[in-house]
């Protein structure tokens, strides 16, 4: 089967996020971007299926900082083809990106689209579900354990408490991947460099997508801290002592 994986670059959440002076967006100049972790899982699951059943894996990214690197990394891991969508505003809402990805898919042969289940940086819905709805094909979010048997794709959808639902589908489908069956593989930098010399990224201009998302962002802010934690300072020894004390008090009481 031919699998397409749209990938997204998102700000690294381990770093401090600052808000611009107008309070309308993050201060983006100093942000570092990395691939959304759920996209990494989608790539891994797609490669696992390809390795077991043949077919191809194509990755698609929207042009921005780090997109080339992420696409080449996916190629280095074993993807067959990479496409970069150009001429699309970096801040385009997900509905607009979904339309652009639809346009790219229209010229391709594919069986499964695997997106990451969600990304932490947008507010207008998850691309996978939007894509499935625009394309008129089924979509399932929070997916793991995808398997293929002939023409049939089977998968799990996760609910709370470790309960899962099983589904089967024998048509094109969009899956929002939560977790691959194994930890996403790693591509050594040397391998990525080599791939950059050997392979090329295909570029496709985004057609004008006339989608009004119908919402405007008024304000971005860091959540008001409630009581917050009482922060314990000092040497590791002192800190351990204080933590032991509060725990012992709680255990005793």
């Amino acid at each position: 089967m031919n699998i397409v994986v749209p990938i997204k670059l998102v700000p690294d959440l381990v770093e401090e996020l600052e808000i611009n002076d107008e309070g309308t967006d993050l201060e983006r100049d100093f942000l570092s971007y990395k691939i959304n972790e759920f996209c990494d899982h989608a790539i891994e699951e797609a490669l696992q299926l390809k390795e077991a059943h043949g077919g191809t894996v194509t990755v698609i990214g929207v042009e921005r900082d780090e997109t080339d690197k992420a696409l080449f990394t996916a190629l280095a891991k074993g993807a067959d083809k990479a496409i970069k969508i150009t001429e699309l505003d970096e801040a385009a809402p997900t509905h607009v990106v979904a339309k652009a990805v639809c346009n790219v898919l229209a010229g391709m042969e594919y069986d499964i689209v695997m997106t990451g289940v969600q990304a932490a940086d947008d507010r207008d819905g998850q691309l996978g579900v939007l894509l499935g709805s625009y394309l008129g094909i089924p979509h399932v979010s929070v997916v793991s354990d995808v398997s293929i048997d002939g023409d049939t794709i089977a998968l799990h959808k996760e609910y709370a408490g470790g309960v899962m639902a099983r589904y089967e589908v024998a048509s094109k489908v969009v899956l929002g991947v939560q977790a691959a069956r194994q930890t996403p593989r790693y591509a050594p930098v040397s391998r990525v460099r080599q791939i950059m010399k050997e392979m090329e990224i295909e570029e496709v201009e985004a057609a004008d997508a006339d989608v009004a998302i119908g919402s405007t962002l008024r304000r971005v802010y860091t959540p008001e801290k409630g009581e917050g934690a009482e922060m314990i300072e000092g040497s590791a020894e002192d800190i351990a002592g204080k933590i032991a004390a509060v725990i012992n008090e709680k255990r005793g009481g």
């Binding site: 509905h95 289940v117 969600q118 507010r123 207008d124 819905g125 998850q126 579900v129 939007l130 499935g132 709805s133 625009y134 979509h139 399932v140 979010s141 929070v142 959808k157 996760e158 609910y159 709370a160 929002g176 998302i213 119908g214 919402s215």
Partner: peptide, 23 residues
Amino acid sequence: NTSMGMDLAASLSVKNDLPLVAY
């Protein structure tokens, strides 16, 4: 905005052409 709701909200937004804010 749960596993089930994720599949409903965004598709409703497309099918009925309605604005959606998630999370």
